[in-house]
Design a protein around this nucleic acid. Structure first.
Lengths: 199, 199
DNA sequence: TGCAACTGGGAACGACCGTTCCAAGATAGC
DNA sequence: GCTATCTTGGAACGGTCGTTCCCAGTTGCA
């Protein structure tokens, strides 16, 4: 057997995720990647292929590591509306403070960039949206079963609304929107679903 | 008096708007601008300055020509909820069909790009958001005066929700979201404001 | 120990980036 | 027609882009 890799591809990809997440693909050069990861151009191209493939890998990793676990937690939460409220609270917290403050959501950012012309990127975007919507829908169905929703509320439609609302939060947070403003807005949206007795 | 300009700066800037709107700043080169506008590098730099200034001018033009008139129409519309419904219908129509289908909103796109690090760009974004929110608020106040809103509905909070929803529409439309899906979602959101008797 | 396989360092590629500069052309007042 | 002033065409700048290539270094197996 020949020589083995001298670095951890997974850790390197995580570094790349943060790079593309914060700056976008178009504004991030290969040199930036080389500098940030510390690994060589040769190793980079041998491991991940070209820039577009690297971006796609980073985007997929973002969804798997960052989005999907949160969606799963939301979908499996048995509390109903409080679960949705907690989802948004966590979202706003992650977007507005801590290490990733002002970075928005990598998938939301990808929507707005020139990246989405790539069919493979587009597929990741659509899948992500579908999963977010489904998780929201599951939580809403749970909420309805517990009598938390106003009578006329359709969980499917409400899930769509909340999913789009999440994108709005992601977008505005990247421009430095105030966390309390966003929280207040989300709270109002949830209140309209649950009536006066919302959690 | 010396020689005069051989081109129309306003028409040229409109061409630039479409270029940046569709592709984003980072993915658009000066060469693209030169090719699309047909005018020379010298004229370009003499008239608009560098790339960043050109982008800022284009972004401001977009807001003035595309966003602001729509906001004004919404704010001044005396019908209440139907005015908001029409706003969203026009938005979805513009985003999903016609010349600009799949382009999203230039301001929404700017949120997600690396552009917003520029304070002047950021200011345009914040101002745009404020104006959208205010227009929405005005329409909601009108709606409430006509008894179209459910009793507990706060126009200020509802305006925030609808503004974020608009960003969500813009974002998803850029990934090719179906117009009918978006319409259905928006209709559901408006229905939750107006109760069973919504227009 | 020699071979084969794969690594990493780093130079180099052509193309394009945003920007600048200069000479030629055009216009208005004298 | 001359001059002054501005515009325009286009070459050219240094730098960076994404990508490729080669060579030395390192490892495991025969």
């Amino acid at each position: 057997m020949p020589d083995i890799k001298h670095f951890d591809p997974d850790a390197a990809l995580e570094t790349v995720v943060r790079l593309f997440w914060r700056q976008g693909v178009a504004s991030t050069g290969i040199q930036d990647v080389v500098t940030a990861t510390g690994l060589n151009r040769s190793s980079l191209y041998a491991t991940f292929g070209g820039k577009q493939e690297l971006y796609l890998a980073a985007l997929r990793r973002y969804v798997e590591q960052r989005s999907r676990p949160v969606f799963r937690r939301l979908a499996e939460d048995e509390r109903g509306l409080p679960a949705i409220a907690e989802f948004f609270a966590g979202l706003i917290d992650a977007r507005c403070s801590g290490e990733y403050a002002g970075w928005g959501c990598m998938v939301s950012n990808a929507h707005a960039g020139a990246d989405n012309s790539d069919p493979e990127v587009r597929a990741v975007l659509d899948r992500h949206h579908e999963e977010l919507r489904d998780a929201m829908h599951a939580a809403l169905v749970t909420a309805r079963a517990q009598g938390q929703l106003v009578p006329g509320c359709d969980p499917r439609a409400a899930a769509d609304v909340l999913a789009l609302l999440a994108y709005g939060v992601n977008l505005r947070s990247r421009a430095g929107a105030d966390a309390r403003d966003l929280s207040r807005t989300v709270t109002a949206a949830l209140a309209s679903l649950g009536g006066p007795a919302a959690a």
